[in-house]
Each structure stands twice: as C-alpha cells, then as structure tokens.
Computed example of a mutant assay.
Amino acid sequence: MGTAFAFGYLIGMLVSVGVGRSRAGISQRGRLSLFTIFGSLPWFMTQMASMLAWPAFLCLWLARGRPDSPWRAVTTVDGSVLVRRRGNQ
C-alpha cells in the first residue's frame, strides 16, 4: 500500500511540473536554462512548492474554480525565455 501511495505521489509530482510549464506557455521539451530559472525566480519557486505539495495546490485550484495561470512566458530580445506575471512586462 505504501509503495502504491509513493508511486502515485511521484506521478503527481511529474504531472504538476508538466502542467505548470504548459500553463505558463513553456514547451515540454528540454531543460530550463539557468538564465530562465534565475530570471524567473518567483515562478520557479512557486513551481517547486506546487510540485512538492501538489495535492494541496490541486484542491485550492479546484476550489477557486480553476482560474487561469497568472504566469506567461515571454521571449527576450536575445531569444531566451523568461516567465513573468501576466500584468508585468
């Protein structure tokens, strides 16, 4: 029983990473560059928290009526990707 719980939790962690990237507008392919991680630190830290505590984040998201993501990916002039809040440029 414990193995099934651990396996399900790990699957949930992987799915939360994919959903977080998709909702921000980032491709599922490849790794994030260090520039993207450090340039988008608030988004990255939120994603790490949601990955570790995904059941709580899922319940909160559903209770709020499945709101849109406040994050969006923007491409800089040099072609790198940063994640910003939707209201900020």
Rank of each mutant, 00 (worst) to 15 (best):
L52H: 02
M13K: 06
L34H: 07
S40L: 14
V77E: 10
L41M: 09
M48P: 02
R64A: 02
S27P: 15
A6G: 03
M13S: 02
T46N: 15
A53S: 14
L34W: 14
L52R: 05
R85H: 05
F7Y: 04
M51A: 01
I37N: 04
G25H: 13
V17I: 15
F5V: 05
G12D: 08
G79N: 10
R21I: 11
R85I: 05
G65M: 12
W43L: 10
G25E: 13
S22A: 03
N88S: 09
R64C: 04
T76D: 11
N88W: 14
G65R: 08
S27T: 15
Y9A: 04
L34Y: 10
P42M: 06
S69L: 10
A49T: 09
A49L: 14
R84K: 13
I37Q: 07
L34S: 05
L60D: 12
L62C: 03
A24L: 14
G39A: 06
Q28N: 07
F35R: 01
V19C: 02
I26T: 11
W61H: 00
W61C: 00
W71T: 06
V17T: 12
N88Q: 12
I11H: 01
T76S: 11
T75H: 03
P70M: 06
L34C: 03
N88F: 13
V15F: 11
L10A: 03
R72K: 02
A4Q: 14
A73P: 11
S33H: 13
S40V: 13
G20L: 12
R85A: 03
M48T: 07
G18W: 15
R72T: 00
R23F: 11
G20F: 12
V81W: 06
Q89T: 00
S80E: 13
Q89R: 03
V15A: 05
V83H: 10
L58V: 11
G30P: 11
A49S: 09
Q28S: 08
D78A: 04
G25A: 10
M48A: 10
F7Q: 04
Q47R: 05
